[in-house]
Write a protein that binds this DNA or RNA. Structure first.
Lengths: 239, 239
DNA sequence: GCAAAAGTGTTACAATTACACCCATGC
DNA sequence: GCATGGGTGTAATTGTAACACTTTTGC
């Protein structure tokens, strides 16, 4: 076989890179969507994204597409999610789309184009194509990883009190988490480190909160095996 | 925009579906590879796969490609892994490839074409393209899912003793697991169910083994939150 | 009876949740 | 001082690893 380029046996397809960019704002988990002006799905909200160009990887493509929405420097994490290939997913013709999950720390407020806005993930507007279900996949991925990795670093500001971090986790997970237990779990695993600084109390008083930061600036798996762990190599201590 | 088909702004690419088909045979985790006859990578071993056709999904494409290697009915599980898009991954020209993880139960021995064979995952031969690293991703995915889902069903025969299941887990995980603990964990979670049958002991004697089966025939998440579980809704019982 | 293999009982350990209590600050 | 918010101590619970022991068979 001399060429891999398009032929009846090897058709080619435009490929899109899509981004599900999530952030916690005002205690809610929100997703970045832009409003389509044209058909199909005119007026519906869609994920940012666009065509994969000839000499870029999908990761680079997503970053490039997002550059028109947010500064890429503001993205604290980007990972591949999944690839959608339903021939009917775009009524104009076949496209294949690979979705990425992007996270923005809660202290940033990127300027967005006029047609782009944040939407709460628990009350999505009408979405174009299969983008609503892609957002659902992204939420599942984020929630799972909050439990066994340190992804929280990507949603949190550089320095924070446990109460602030708790609010972020509650918004992202969608259920209550107590500050006490969150602190224990993350400190025990070495995911958090104290900065030595404290935050001044609010106008109602109260003890000043210690400030923490995430110990590692990139994704790590902190709880690799929930069960069926490798053997410890020693018996438990005899009495 | 009137067309999404190929244009300088919307280039199109041949898209491949690849399969990492894993099975436990003779106590080892093996992967199905075929030997390339032609350049590039002539003589190297590659993952089964081929072009995505015009009106099929990636999942259907993988199943179709695999049909020439194994009966698709023998695949007990198939899930999407990841998509590789490095422009240089194929020296002949750009292709995008989406890899799937496929599992075959250990009691089946599909007839394979002459150029296709099983290879132990802990001693891979020289592989073509980025296929070696894709196999690595697949192993990571399988090992993680053995811990928090019931994927084991896809590697095991319909009915088995705990000792047989233990051998499968050991081969797949790459470290020792005791039959006792495996049984406890899986029974507690309701992943296993007793069939009521027993297996006759070997020629050396021994107590007959009870036979079990997996309670659900499809993938389920059995341990969704290792930590940061949702609140129980009640305090612990007061004395 | 003895060896072999399977399964159960029990203990030890680890991690986490829940909750009471103490600490530090503003007013 | 007192309310408020933050943090620590501690008990209860759960789940799992480790290992001894019993059960059931072939020879």
């Amino acid at each position: 076989m001399t060429s891999v380029w398009s032929s009846p046996e090897r058709p080619a397809y435009p490929h899109q890179a899509l981004a599900v960019v999530l952030q916690v704002r005002a205690g809610r988990l929100v997703v970045m969507l832009w409003r389509r002006a044209n058909e199909p799905f005119a007026g519906a909200w869609a994920l940012p994204g666009g065509p994969l160009l000839a000499d870029e990887t999908l990761g680079a493509s997503v970053a490039r597409q997002l550059a028109s929405k947010v500064e890429v420097r503001q993205l604290s994490h980007l990972e591949q999610l999944e690839t959608r290939s339903d021939p009917g997913r775009d009524p104009r013709g076949r496209t294949v789309a690979t979705a990425y999950l992007g996270l923005v720390p809660s202290h940033l407020d990127p300027a967005l184009p006029a047609d782009t806005a944040w939407h709460p993930t628990d009350a999505l507007p009408g979405t174009a194509f299969d983008h609503g279900s892609i957002v659902g996949s992204a939420l599942g991925r984020l929630r799972a990883k909050l439990s066994y990795t340190n992804v929280g670093f990507a949603l949190a500001p550089p320095s924070f009190s446990i109460a602030e971090l708790r609010d972020i986790y509650v918004a992202a997970l969608g259920y209550e988490v107590t500050a006490t237990n969150l602190q224990r779990v993350l400190l025990r695993r070495g995911v958090l480190a104290a900065t030595g600084e404290t935050a001044p109390p609010g106008r109602a008083g109260g003890r000043p909160a210690m400030l923490y930061r995430f110990a590692a600036p990139a994704l790590e798996v902190t709880d690799p095996f929930a069960v069926l762990k490798p053997p410890s190599g020693r018996g438990h201590a005899a009495s």
